[in-house]
Design a protein around this nucleic acid. Structure first.
Lengths: 208, 208, 208, 208
DNA sequence: TCTTAAACGAGACGGTACGTCTGGTCTTATC
DNA sequence: GATAAGACCAGACGTACCGTCTCGTTTAAGA
């Protein structure tokens, strides 16, 4: 986020830090109330009690602004305290992720940004670094715990280990997002348990 | 799709079927070239050689039009011919689905529509009936084949069977979409094989 | 008006005379309720219970249709019965003309058509032959009566007589129209008497 | 005209005076080239090198804009220098008024505005205050000169004097407009002399 | 009575303008 | 030099009419 204030200027009126916070809060509020397509920069400025120029001085446009606004939400995601088993850890993170996706500002912004990113490589990079990649640590931490417990073997090849972590991340995040946003069904404890069982045991053995 | 011609009128000049086809084709072309945010109704009309009013006479707006345009793409998805094993069938359908998601019009439209659908219940229903639910048959057909081969047991409870099918659909579709659009990494045969192994055997046994 | 049915066709279904009447009546009604700028062909068609094509089969456009519709009103203008003096005859015709201009359909249509005619020579000719020139007979008849009574001399030069008639027509019609539509003041008996006195006696002698 | 800048704002970027002038000039040019019915706001904006929003920020629509544009023309009308007789003064002002009505932008706009004003009371008031009433001073000045010369008596009753001035204004303006726009005949010196003679001497004595 | 050809209703069609809204920039005066 | 205010250009929005067209149906005159 500090990337957008490239150099600390020595002269003139300093930028208002309060304005930054107000703008990001107003952005999230506007996303909640309006959704993506009715979300406008002018509206955010009004809500934040700020001039439009102040927005554009800090962010290049809608997309950049919203990335920062929702990144703050995703930064709150944490791995739950160690519950003793890999299955419990997975269920915990799935439910926390699902809780995040139930916030309307996250739902609408996330999908819209990904849609925009299909034709905007810079935006894609920004989303990955600000939002997506930060969540991978959850997978890595979870695996480390499981390996300590002896539930998972320690992989020799670090490259293969990274590939597997990416795969698991895509499976977990993808399944939860698809369930919540595409199928539009609740990610409740029951579904979470079924999903975790499938993920751990596989299709051939998880069905009794 | 026939929902947009509510009643077969007996009187007046009939609607041009050629215009319908030209508009849907122009819609896909515009999505490819412009992406979602620069996609405009006027541009589609011009490409299709049609007046803007003709678009609005058939579709209420961008969203409805694009749903129909991309639904035509998804209707082309077919389960590959029986390859003898469940693993091969899964890999086949994953690769076909990934191929579809590599088409820029599908990528950009799908995510944007889902984003819009988070604040538009009618749109969500339209997407489900026109696009999503139709693909579930792939899961059902694949399971039937596997059950005939004896790879999967026949479930007694039909409700539980339906829930499982939904779960598998969310996992497969979600993982592929996430890999392709969020992680923006290729869904190549190697990844597909790893994913299929994980799905069939589970996390605890699939990592040697 | 018959100019719009160029040749009596020998075959096919004949045009409905009832439709003609209904359309002209609907035209006047629409002018009353909507004024010129909100007057639309489609609305007239609906009011007349007729298809738009039926309008365009008979008239080339708004202007032509309205010319015919208001011409019917102006055809009702008659010189009042001989009241014995030129002053009384003038007052009579001024009041009748003013009564016509109080009809909203006449007010709005007349000025609008004249405005259009400034950039449409054919329309100007059509207005003159259908509306304006027909009223000149009122001036000619009035003069003839006055000459018979001896109130006005008989002019020797017929060309000069015609020029004078045109001048008087412009003065009477122009003054009444300007009073009614531009100044938007009532053309009541009092004003009519003042105007007639001025017209007969002139500025230098009419103000006591 | 200043009525459209309701309050002198203290803050924000001030409105461009250059834009105002460019728009009014473009309006007159468009009226000349296109006439009233083909005159469009978008076209004026393009001619003036201005965005459509800039037009609508200042004027509510076509009518208001054109009133201001033609009012500037009418403001140029002046009583000619004193020519020594009332007849000469009248002829002078008639010819100047006629010259104005020969400008296509004045012809087409004036009649169209009057037509619109028949169903729009606010527009009528605007036309009167911006265009019509300002010309009455010509009548008042002319009468004052004539009274000084002794050609006309000084009226005792100021109300009657006002009524007479209004009447003369309607007769002069009405006759000239009718001659120029309805009869579509030239207001040349010959016609002007005949008209002035009629106005001064009346019908009964002006015809030899 | 049976053609037959134009008139008719309905409404879709390609266009064009409307007046509004948004995006992103700029120009003021103020802080 | 940052700020609030708001004017500015550019261009898309969805609507309304225009005048034309294409249907299927109706209707009178001539065969």
């Amino acid at each position: 986020m500090q990337s957008r204030t490239p150099a600390p200027r020595a002269t003139g009126r300093p930028r208002s830090a309060a304005a930054d916070a107000a703008i990001l809060a107003a952005t999230r509020q506007a996303l909640v109330e309006l959704g993506w397509s009715k979300f406008t920069m002018g509206d955010v400025a009004t809500r934040a009690g700020v001039a439009k120029t102040t927005l554009y001085r800090r962010w290049a446009g809608k997309n950049d602004l919203v990335v920062d606004a929702v990144a703050e939400l995703f930064d709150e995601l944490r791995l739950p305290p160690d519950r003793g088993t890999l299955a419990a850890d997975i269920e915990g993170v799935v439910l926390r992720f699902a809780a995040l996706l139930e916030r309307p500002e996250a739902r609408t912004a996330l999908m819209a940004l990904i849609a925009e990113s299909t034709t905007d490589e810079a935006l894609r990079a920004r989303i990955r670094s600000s939002i997506v990649d930060r969540q991978k640590r959850l997978v890595l931490e979870g695996r480390a715990r499981a390996q300590q417990r002896g539930e998972l073997p320690t992989e020799a090849d670090p490259e293969a280990a990274a590939r597997t972590a990416d795969l698991i991340f895509d499976v977990i995040a993808g399944a939860v997002v698809h369930r919540a946003l595409v199928s539009a069904e609740p990610v409740d404890p029951e579904w979470t348990r079924s999903f975790t069982t499938l993920l751990l045991n596989g299709l051939t053995t998880s069905t009794p």
